[in-house]
Amino acid sequence: MREFSYHRPKSVADAAKAFSSKSEARYLAGGHSLLPAMKQRLNAPSDLIDLSAIKDLKGIKIAGGEVVIGAGTTHAEVAHSTEIKKAIPALCVLAEGIGDPQVRNRGTIGGSLANNDPASDYPAAVLGLGATVVTNKREIAADSFFKGLFETALEDGEIITAVRFPIPEKAGYAKFAQPASRFCIVGVMAAKTKSGVRVAVTGAGPGVFRATDIEKALASSFSAGASLPAVKASGLSSDIHAGAEYRAHLVGVMAKRAVAAAG
């Protein structure tokens, strides 16, 4: 890692203030994407602003038909939350499948969303469940939060404080992991919500997206036996692990599994 200065503010306001006074500051959440990138010297911020001491970013609340997860909540905390398990079990399944036990003990939902790795799991949950990303400045609907490869609607210095997940009628998540990194080759969150069926796909393309054709097919019958339209390969990613054709095929398979898991 290159040198940097380290800050550990106690409040969101202090964090934002610290950020604005530095030339190339970065927020540090769980650090499980940023620190490895810094170790490879692919990322060299002047200042790291550690958000872990901010109490307001922690905690899980269920109220008003929503699961509200503080941005600093770790994947392990989500995976093991008995309240979430009751409200949106698919979210626990998804969190339990991120990285490995050690990564889940450090990585946070806020950090993961702000990073928006195209192969990460959480974007599928946020988009698939129609969640709202709450920041220190505003609330951003899932449909306008993700802007493609590592890009989000977050402005410079904006901090995710929480994510609000409306509790769906039912939802399921299925993931086909890349064999080396165990990130998603394809991850699909399929949900039957009050506002209709939502199917979000991560890993397959340069950013999370909704599989609208599959949503339409499931709208009439949200069941594992539903016949789903074939997914087109164009626009999907290709790498040494999976070509676009294979990814397209897997979107269909994972969508079926997700619906089956939703019960």
């Binding site: 080396a180 990194s181 692990h241």
Partner: peptide, 11 residues
């Protein structure tokens, strides 16, 4: 080298 780390070389 495309499979140049454990992110792409499947151990």
């Amino acid at each position: 080298l495309i499979s140049g780390s454990y992110m792409d070389y499947a151990m």
